[in-house]
Design a protein around this nucleic acid. Sequence first.
DNA 1: GGCAGATATGGTATCGGTACCATACAATCG
DNA 2: CGATTGTATGGTACCGATACCATATCTGCC
Lengths: 355, 355
Amino acid sequence: MRPLLNALPPDNSDGTGRQPTIRDVARLAGVAPITVSRVINNTSYISPETRERVQSAIDTLHYVPNSISRSLRTKKTNMLAMLVSDITNPFWTTVTRGAEDASSHHGLNIILCNTDEKQDKFADYVTVLLQKQIDGFLLAPTGDDRASIARIDKQGVPYVLIDRVLPNIQADSVRSDSVTGAYLLTKHLIELGHKRIAIITAPMVVSTGRERLEGYLMALEEAGLARDDCLIHHGGYQHETGYHATCAALRSAATRPTALFAGNNFIATGVLKALDEHGLRVPEDMSVVSFDDLPYGFYRKPFMTVALQEPYTLGYEAASLLIQRVNGDVTTPQQEIIYPVELIIRDSCAPPAQR
Amino acid sequence: MRPLLNALPPDNSDGTGRQPTIRDVARLAGVAPITVSRVINNTSYISPETRERVQSAIDTLHYVPNSISRSLRTKKTNMLAMLVSDITNPFWTTVTRGAEDASSHHGLNIILCNTDEKQDKFADYVTVLLQKQIDGFLLAPTGDDRASIARIDKQGVPYVLIDRVLPNIQADSVRSDSVTGAYLLTKHLIELGHKRIAIITAPMVVSTGRERLEGYLMALEEAGLARDDCLIHHGGYQHETGYHATCAALRSAATRPTALFAGNNFIATGVLKALDEHGLRVPEDMSVVSFDDLPYGFYRKPFMTVALQEPYTLGYEAASLLIQRVNGDVTTPQQEIIYPVELIIRDSCAPPAQR
DNA sequence: GGCAGATATGGTATCGGTACCATACAATCG
DNA sequence: CGATTGTATGGTACCGATACCATATCTGCC
């Protein structure tokens, strides 16, 4: 192997001084360009001899088909885009993994875009991706992204909402049953005897934030417990939110809750950190529940009582549905797929301490 | 707003039944297509009146430029690809963040691809990305990916190696000083009095695995300690490797090490889990050091003694260098950029327990 | 023999932009 | 005043594939 050097000029061994095109291959093989195209894409009858001549021409020239020009003609890019809110969260990377697996079975690639829960980043990505003629979108809307979604709509590009929905948007969607999950977690705490349960979750513009609050309130109401807005904290789905909201909740001994409900795994890590700094033990001094498992390996062994989603399935099924639409299926009625969540009871909850 | 419905046919308000093109805009504005192109790209003198007429035509038609056809003509896609080994690791997501920031300043987008440390996934991505005429590659090679890299080379597409290098590959590269980092960590343990230090790291085909072993051996040699192959464990940069290797290291009380060196953060989580299951406390019963910080929020407060890299900087600088090359800079000599790592001493190490 | 259908290949136009070259007029200048 | 430079716009060809239509041979069968 010759020593490799990056940023070399293109291979000039054929003397043309540029990358070979389908015409160069055709000339060398003594056939028409369209025939080469057929060999590459297996789209028509080709005699074995021709196929072999073409293939050997491809090999000698190191021909690489140009999918840009292909896309221009076919109006398909074979690319899907996925806009997620936080790529550092294992929940989302697992969703991505599922979507990728579903896509690769169909020869589609996924462009992963991190919106950082910011509406303007969402909008910017949509702009660029529409120009790039992406075949379809998997969207986890951040706040009110309806304007961006309307633009996707206007271009006639299919999309599927994932994990989150938006009011007044009629669209295919795949998500987990946040309401029931939150209801079960809260009910579990109530059954242990807790009466002052704080919830720390995402703002109401995020549908999972709304739904988890709804499930929480449902359980309270069922148990005859009054809603107390002092116990409801809204922030982002981040570590910092969990940390600061917990500190705030602990400030006054009088109103201090006996249990904390973290809206997702990252909030839960912040909650635990704040409790630790206040010298409070889980579950002896404070019970904690959360949505989603903590990052793998977190805290030696899993000890948190959680409502488990199936992020891989979410991603896989959302992508499968999108691919159906991309392939022109408009007959299947609009889908709103909601997966059940599973309550996993571990060691982070106990009856409230006596005061 | 009309109710939104995904997978609608494209907007037909102009009666053409298809997406408007630059020619449609030109017709409506009463100018030539090239003039519209100039307005969009700001590439030539345009009178204010013309600009406004064109802009308003763009607005009425909801024209979205097609970057596929643009790329075909200009031979630029304004896309970079980044192939990383493990997208679930915060180290890599932070690298990505840095690369994205550097790229977006230049109007470039990054396609993030997860190779899962698998050579065939690496090769498959390279194939697809070359066809998509990506402008440049940021590569974290997994094992021996030289064949794939040779193909990139042959197409004349610039690339920069990031975090890892490959033997006999002359290429721009950006990475951390693994040798010194490993040397410092090991030396720290030796100075505390440890004589039996196990290292758990990546296989030798990964350059960081090689280099970290090298630094470890350097420190041993300097201290006059003999190399003991029973103390050297190779696996992947994953939680499982740390877990299983630690279990193996603990098996025999006679050969049991007094300190463990984890090759990266994920290995460290596995190490901690295994120690916990064996009822061993850190640092009282076992000292542990690691490369890279544990995931944010891990273990309440940071307590691990680590060699810190700067993943954001790595990503930012690698992308900046790549962008230079993409923009045609072939005069700057080949760069091999190595960032220092910082030894952060926390609470995971102590002198070895008396036997 | 003639015809339907399977097999195998090619010519030409086209996707939607921009490169390249050309043109025309106004302002500036020695 | 003619030449030069700056401003403003357009015509045509082309990037590298494939869609669409056409053609030719071969087989089997009535």
